[in-house]
């Protein structure tokens, strides 16, 4: 059982780190603001989500697990809002110089 949980942590956190890496490469390499935002949301949503899911079997108490999930949900909310606001600013006034 514990081996299975360890395996789960390794697989999920590795996948999460992969999404962070992919998101960062996208942020640095994509040509304009909207595509860069698209890359960034992958790191926030999937990357952090997978890292949190991977760490869940490691927490000492259900409360700590709940806090981890809350952190993920709050980052989702903040990330989605910030992306929307940046995208709206770009659409209204053109790409920043």
């Amino acid at each position: 059982m514990s081996l299975l949980l360890d395996l789960w942590t390794i697989v999920a956190v590795t996948a999460g780190v992969f999404f962070f890496l992919a998101g960062t490469v996208g942020l640095l390499r994509f040509p304009d603001t909207l595509t860069r935002l698209h890359a960034l949301t992958k790191a926030d949503n999937l990357g952090l989500g997978l890292v949190v899911l991977g760490l869940l079997p490691r927490v000492g108490s259900p409360l700590a697990g709940l806090k981890l999930i809350c952190v993920w949900l709050l980052v989702l909310l903040a990330g989605a809002t910030a992306s929307q606001l940046i995208a709206r600013a770009v659409r209204r006034s053109g790409p920043p110089v």
């Binding site: 909310l77 903040a78 989605a80 809002t81 929307q84 606001l85 709206r88």
Partner: peptide, 10 residues
Amino acid sequence: GMLAYLARLL
């Protein structure tokens, strides 16, 4: 708007 939504939710 998105900001009004966040300012009501958060």
